[in-house]
Write a protein that binds this DNA or RNA. Structure first.
Length: 827
RNA sequence: GCCCGGAUGGUGAAAUGGUAGACACGAGAGACUUAAAAUCUCUUGGCCGCAAGGCCAUGCCGGUUCAAGUCCGGCUCCGGGCACCA
């Protein structure tokens, strides 16, 4: 094929793959399953984004490679179409989400089907269909039964622009993850999933998971485990108990004051004892009006002393003053702290500002304490939560306890242990592990999502809708579906929806007006792919046994603590329901880097958005996909350039042109055969590690070798085409059929086996070094013995200059590589 | 502040402790062509040198080693995660 029409070929083969169901496996009879998954797209109006396409591609080449290797490959596709994203866009263009999505999904299907991905188009999932969200709701009811879905009143993030509450994970850098609006704090009664019940399991699981490290670290940070103790203080006079969490129980003797978060419940109870109540109340109101971002932006700490109120330190019965200050957070620990200004930077700042006493109870380590120091290092292996944030005049590190009664002389680690034991014995406290992770708020005061499947009944209370009545269908709203902002979902206005009967007693009932978070839709979609039409099960159990967990998953790391953590949580919950027997939904997950344009993030406002379709038409999808993968390793960010795309296109053309050199009588010389087998070996190794960039480089090298060859044998040619097929699928198919094959190249597991003997070089270049500097290169037989190699090296003419008259100290031989002659340097 | 990454030619990047810069882009030269495009071939880290060759070179400073881009210690800068989280 001298000049080939890539566009025509790509369209032809994309059609045939779908039409002949080349990439549609029989899930039931599959012998050797491989489940390749990419993050299903949100079908935006702008169409397919290059970043998504890149992730799809990196899954797709692996899928094709496995297919060529004879696996039964399942590479499904679907649409994450519910959610605020879709809804907001529909609002903007004045259309209902359903009408808008019909159009955008059709556009996505068109774009994706011409892109030559090996997707199974018979099991497409759309989260907005009742067949799908029936099971989203079902998951809710199951979690409800297990006590993992519950309602509570809590201080939540309310996005004034999206007019809904959001989960903590959806606040990024203090603003709404979606619209970048600063949320305000609101106390509301909402539905939560008890993800905190899985905190330790989510953390422990990470250790053995084959996921990108950046993803695992993000999750670890988010879960935020810290070890310490709960200590019971009491309020003097009224004897009200109040607990604090601390990671430094060893500094208990250094507590000189006590702080409550402004929202702490005990404040109301203390009201009669607070002499300056008006001042306190004013502060509480002001703090409540501030967003988290405003609270932290101003590093200057503020607070109000509660006059007449004292807390009693349980270790020494000292009465210490009590403050309200917003540097103590309601949601973390107990919402109250013992302040140790000598050893905590924040407490120190506050103490200086309000002129409070500072009592040192930990001494720095110095040389005299060598022994203690060594001991501490050992202890640290056990205690990982070392805190070091030295402020100007406070020491937050570890050391030796002083001024601390029975702790004096102990290292921090020892003192912690001893204090915890002491507290426990006296009933004044206990060991406690605390997590930063909070429960997942799933209520959204919006229209475009699956309804929360519960009925409120005056007699029976809150009742989950039973499985036989699912799904609770989202009613069609032509008008008034925009968010009201009054804290209730738009569904509240649909009387026919809201008014229902209690599933338990048959009496009058009211539905929940809120819908569920979009991240719940996407937390389980890969289960549904297996049997999207099954109306009896969330997924067909035998198929689950065969195909799950997913073998390879690729997507953006912006979902590390959103989608990817929620998914792990739901998977664990499904396991506890007895549906599956694994905790980790994805055997291997890889976070792909970002594709930048001119070194910058792509955005519509900058006008530097790359449309894959444009390049598909210009150079073809084979070339575009190859280029994206050739750009560098999967995990790194990198820049897209037009010149680079042309390089990939040039390679495809070059491969196509080689076919005219193929003829039946041609015999390959040994160099070609050797290169072929080395290439097979290298490409396989690269695929195992998803090093697509170097795999492509090896194939380019092979292409250059074939370009230089006089003729190419049919056998070598067939094998070479197969090797290129994951990257250049349409071209490979075309060349394969041109070579006389009737069936698709992807059908029969035709990947060639490499022959170690044929891959072996007969001669090698022996590097000769003197004092580790390259001085000569000599061609020698590959199987040369150590003695012969050393002898050859020492005889080298070029070496004379460097070794003459010098004493040879030793000769180092590295098999198949080099001889290094170490000589004594005469100065 | 804590936890992770990263830094290699003009550019994207390769490199089980063993020849730094594979492969590609860009650039330069040549062949083919009436010409151009396409294609093919060659050159292409820096400095010195007619050449042979030599020296320098993987962010910076040290160390381990016969040998360090790679391992260890200490920095600098860039990127990411968390962050008044007790």
């Amino acid at each position: 094929m001298e000049n080939y029409n890539f566009r025509q070929i790509e369209i032809k083969w994309a059609d045939r793959w779908v039409g002949e169901k080349i990439f549609t496996p029989d899930l039931k009879s599959a012998k050797n399953p491989f489940y390749a998954l990419f993050m299903f797209p949100y079908p935006s109006a702008e169409g397919l984004h290059i970043g998504n396409f890149y992730a799809f591609t990196s899954v797709d080449v692996m899928a094709k490679y496995k297919k060529l290797k004879g696996y039964d490959v399942f590479e499904p596709i679907g649409f994450d179409a519910f959610g605020i994203h879709s809804e907001n866009y529909a609002l903007k263009i004045g259309e209902t989400p359903a009408a808008m999505l019909a159009r955008t999904i059709a556009n996505f299907r068109r774009q994706l089907s011409s892109a030559g991905l090996g997707c199974d188009w018979t099991r497409v999932v759309d989260t907005t269909t009742p067949e799908y969200y029936k099971w989203t709701e079902w998951i809710f009811t199951k979690l409800f039964e297990k006590g993992l879905a519950y309602q509570k009143e809590a201080l939540l993030n309310w996005c004034p622009s999206c007019k809904t509450v959001l989960a903590d994970e959806q606040i990024e850098g203090g603003v709404c993850e979606r619209c970048k609006t600063q949320p305000v704090k609101k106390t509301m009664k909402q539905w939560f999933f008890k993800i905190t019940a899985y905190a330790q399991r989510l953390l422990d699981g990470l250790d053995s998971m084959d996921w990108s490290d950046i993803t695992k670290y993000a999750q670890r940070n988010w879960i935020g485990r810290s070890e310490g103790a709960i200590v019971k203080f009491t309020i003097a006079d009224c004897r009200l108990p109040i607990k604090v969490f601390t990671t430094r129980p060893d500094t208990l003797f250094g507590a000189t004051y006590f702080v409550l978060a402004p929202e702490h419940g005990i404040i109301r109870e203390l009201k009669p004892h607070i002499k300056n109540w008006d001042e306190a109340e004013k502060y509480i109101k002001e703090a409540g009006a501030k967003s988290d971002l405003e609270r932290t932006e101003n590093k200057e700490k503020t607070g109000v002393k509660l006059e007449g109120v004292y807390a009693v330190n349980p270790v020494n019965d000292e009465k210490i003053p009590v403050f309200i200050a917003d540097y103590v957070l309601t949601g973390y620990g107990t919402g109250a702290i013992m302040a140790v200004p000598a050893h905590d930077a924040r407490d120190y700042d506050f103490a200086v500002k309000y002129n409070l006493s500072i009592k040192e109870v930990v001494r720095h380590m110095n040389e005299e304490n060598q022994n203690a120091n060594l001991k501490m290092q050992n202890d640290n292996l056990k205690f990982k939560n070392i805190i070091k944030n030295d402020a100007d005049n406070c020491f937050a590190g570890e050391g030796i306890s002083i001024n601390s009664g029975f702790l004096d002389g102990l290292t921090t680690a020892e003192a912690k242990e001893k204090m915890i034991a002491w507290l426990f014995k006296k009933g004044l406290g206990e060991r406690k592990v605390n997590y930063r992770l909070r429960d997942w708020c799933i209520s959204r005061q919006r229209y475009w999502g699956p309804p929360v499947p519960v009925v409120y009944c005056a007699k029976c209370g809150t009742v989950a809708v039973p499985e036989k009545d699912l799904p609770v269908v989202l009613p069609e709203m032509k008008k008034g579906w925009e968010p009201a902002g009054d804290g209730r979902g738009p569904l509240a206005k649909v009387e026919s929806f809201m008014k229902t009967v209690c599933p338990k007693c048959g009496g009058p009932g009211t539905r929940e007006a809120d819908v569920m978070d979009n991240f719940l839709d996407s937390a389980w979609y890969f289960f549904r792919y297996l049997s999207p039409a099954d109306d009896k099960h969330i997924f067909e159990p035998e198929l689950g046994k065969k195909w799950l967990p997913v073998d390879l998953y690729v997507g953006g790391n912006e979902h590390a603590v959103l989608h990817l953590m929620y998914t792990r949580f739901i998977t664990m919950a499904l396991k506890d329901l007895g549906l599956i027997d694994f905790d980790n939904p994805f055997k291997r997950f890889r976070a792909n880097g970002m594709i930048l344009k001119d070194g910058k993030k792509m955005s519509k406002s900058k006008g530097n958005v790359i449309n894959p379709e444009e390049y598909g038409e210009k150079v073809g999808y084979d070339a575009l996909k190859t280029y994206l993968l050739f750009l560098g390793p999967l995990s790194e960010d990198r820049s897209f350039t037009d010149a680079g795309v042309l390089g990939a296109k040039r390679w495809a053309d070059k491969v196509a042109r080689l076919s005219i050199k193929v003829n039946k009588d041609a015999k390959d010389d040994d160099a070609v055969t050797r290169k072929l087998h080395k290439t097979i070996r290298a490409v396989e190794a690269d695929f195992e590690e998803q090093k697509y960039n170097t795999a492509i480089a090896r194939l380019m090298e092979m292409t250059n070798v074939l370009t230089a060859a006089a003729g190419i044998s049919q056998d070598t040619w067939n094998k070479f085409i197969i090797l290129t097929a994951p990257f250049l699928p349409a071209l490979a198919e075309e060349l394969w059929s041109e070579a006389g094959h009737k069936e698709s190249i992807f059908l029969n597991g035709v990947w060639p086996e490499y022959d170690e003997d044929l891959a072996r070089e007969e001669t090698i270049e022996l590097v000769v070094q003197v004092n580790s500097r390259l001085r000569d290169k000599i061609m020698v037989p590959a199987d040369i013995s150590e003695e012969a190699a050393k002898e050859t090296a020492l005889k080298s003419e070029k070496l004379k200059k460097w070794t003459e008259g010098k004493e040879i100290l030793k000769v180092i031989y590295i098999k198949g590589r080099l001889v290094n002659i170490v000589v004594k340097d005469s100065q």
